[in-house]
């Protein structure tokens, strides 16, 4: 079974995000880039499916600038067989739909039986690409899955997705798009051998022209980014209990307008 995993490179979760001189972008100086954690669940699940079936191919694919190769190499170190890098300045301002269209063109070329994604990337939290891909491909899609089981023939997949208070179970015909929620699995660490072997694996560069597809202008563009206002400091109410409680109720009602 061939499985494609779409991943996004994002700033490390510990990053202190700063807005750059251009207010439409963040300052990327000194940022450590990682594979978005939900995408790591997707990679792990793809590798487990391959291991469980004893055969198959797992291909990681990502769209972005040259640095994205590092993220793809992390996927190769974890055990993906090869990677595809959509690497073209034409995609610099890609919105989710442009990204999805480019990825869909690659998916059509590769014709996998399963496409796995994270439930959303942790940078802009759009969570749109996987669903858009499914729509463009005409494939069924189950989002936020916690479990999956592919039948022996590789014709259908049973998924359990997280809903309020429980799991919702679906059977989907393959090919299908699944998005991974935390709890689906515990991603492995790359082994040293995996890391040393990653460079020997193929990362294929794909340009917009290779997909026979003229990039279109994004329909969504960032107008400006604004930093969150700093949180006001906490306040300790003074005085004896009856006075403090009275003041607390007053502040909650008049200042915080919470009651």
């Amino acid at each position: 079974m061939k499985i494609l995993v779409a991943v996004k490179q994002v700033p490390d979760t510990a990053t202190q995000v700063k807005i750059s001189a251009d207010p439409r972008a963040i300052d990327t100086t000194g940022i450590t880039w990682i594979v978005s954690p939900y995408d790591e669940f997707a990679v792990e699940e793809a590798l487990r499916i391959k291991e469980k079936r004893g055969q198959g191919e797992v291909v990681a694919v990502s769209l972005g600038p040259e640095r994205v190769k590092e993220a793809l190499r992390s996927c190769l170190a974890m055990g993906c067989d090869r990677a595809i890098h959509l690497n073209d300045p034409a995609w610099n301002d890609a919105d989710t739909l442009v990204t999805s269209k480019a990825l869909a063109a690659v998916v059509k070329q590769e014709a996998p039986q399963l496409l796995l994604c994270g439930r959303q990337a942790i940078d802009d939290d759009m969570g749109a690409v996987a669903a858009q891909l499914a729509e463009l491909l005409g494939w069924p899609c189950a989002s936020w899955i916690m479990e999956e089981a592919i039948d022996g023939d590789g014709k259908t997949v049973r998924t359990a997705r997280q809903v309020e208070g429980g799991l919702e179970v679906f059977d989907l015909p393959l090919p299908a798009v699944l998005t991974a929620q935390k709890g689906l699995n515990e991603p492995r660490y790359p082994t040293l051998r995996g890391i040393m072997g990653a460079k020997k694996k193929e990362i294929r560069d794909v340009k917009a022209a290779d997909l026979g597809w003229a990039p279109e202008p994004p329909q969504l563009s960032v107008v400006t980014l604004e930093a969150l206002p700093p949180r006001p400091p906490g306040r300790i109410l003074q005085g004896d209990v009856p006075t403090a409680v009275k003041e607390l109720v007053r502040s909650l009602r008049e200042e915080a307008k919470a009651i």
Binding site: Y189, T191, L192, R193, I195, M196
Partner: peptide
């Protein structure tokens, strides 16, 4: 051991990870 940290600089054919002393 499973991660390859117990034989970091030993070549792969002998069970190691095939990395180097700096790693």
């Amino acid at each position: 051991g499973e991660l390859g940290l117990m034989g970091v600089a030993i070549p792969e054919p002998w069970g190691g990870s095939g990395a180097d002393t700096v790693a």
